[in-house]
Design a protein around this nucleic acid. Structure first.
Lengths: 134, 134
DNA sequence: CGGGATCCCCCATGATACTG
DNA sequence: CAGTATCATGGGGGATCCCG
């Protein structure tokens, strides 16, 4: 139940194709995890090098422990992040990108770059939109 | 209140820099809109050419009228989508990407491509993770 | 057709507290 | 430090109705 592309009749034309535009395709769930606000930020933050939980928390300003932990688990499950726990005391756990994770993070980063770069344009558009509104 | 980068003391080193990693930076909101599941899907769906509401709804399988309408408004406000209403009857409204929207959509598309491409890897990771879990 | 307005439910998220 | 557990809430998001 947890696999393959869409499960609906018309979609079985090709067992190997994944399509995020299909309501039930597994790839959409992955996209959701990865593209999710915290997901993006965490993935991209890890591009600067693997690091530990609290360090990561500091890099991603505003994320709660819970969300960080939770998102990290999802990303680990999807094979984007590797978790390395060392049985020392105090406990030390390092998180780093997998190859897949890095590939995804790189592309996500290019989105971030673009957005940051074009923010003035965005703000102008917002201004215009809001003004027109009244 | 609705502008500029972060509002915190340490961040004023550069008035022009936007940083999505800063909790209160406006760019994070934009990223959230754009990277949001429906946002991505809608933006990328529009790469195939501008189209009308219901056509768009068909392209993005599973989106409700409300979410489509709502997301479209956000994207329009952020200057990603242009809305062209024709006063005909029945009403006809076309949505299309702005230049900025296309730039963003192109990069988002590359993320989608990558994810779809690597789904087998993802599924394997999920399998392994779930198995290890017991 | 193209939506706006409503109702409502459930999940995502944050705050707090506890454990190893 | 590195989390997990629990609780409370806001709003994301679906369903439905209606209007122009």
């Amino acid at each position: 139940m947890a696999t393959a592309p869409a499960t609906d009749p018309e979609a079985d034309h090709d067992d190997l194709a994944f399509d995020v535009f299909a309501r039930d395709c597994g790839s959409r769930k992955v996209l959701k995890t990865v593209a999710h606000a915290w997901g993006i930020l965490i993935l991209v933050a890890l591009r600067d090098g693997g690091c530990r939980f609290n360090e990561l928390r500091r890099r991603v300003d505003g994320v709660s422990e819970k969300m960080l932990s939770q998102t990290l688990h999802s990303l680990e499950r999807d094979g984007m992040v590797h978790r390395e726990a060392q049985p020392t005391n105090p406990p030390r756990v390092d998180y780093e990108l997998t190859d897949l994770g890095r590939a995804v993070a790189d592309r996500l980063f290019s989105v971030i770059e673009l957005v940051e770069e074009r923010m003035p344009e965005v703000q102008a558009a917002q201004q215009a939109y809001d003004d027109r509104g009244r």
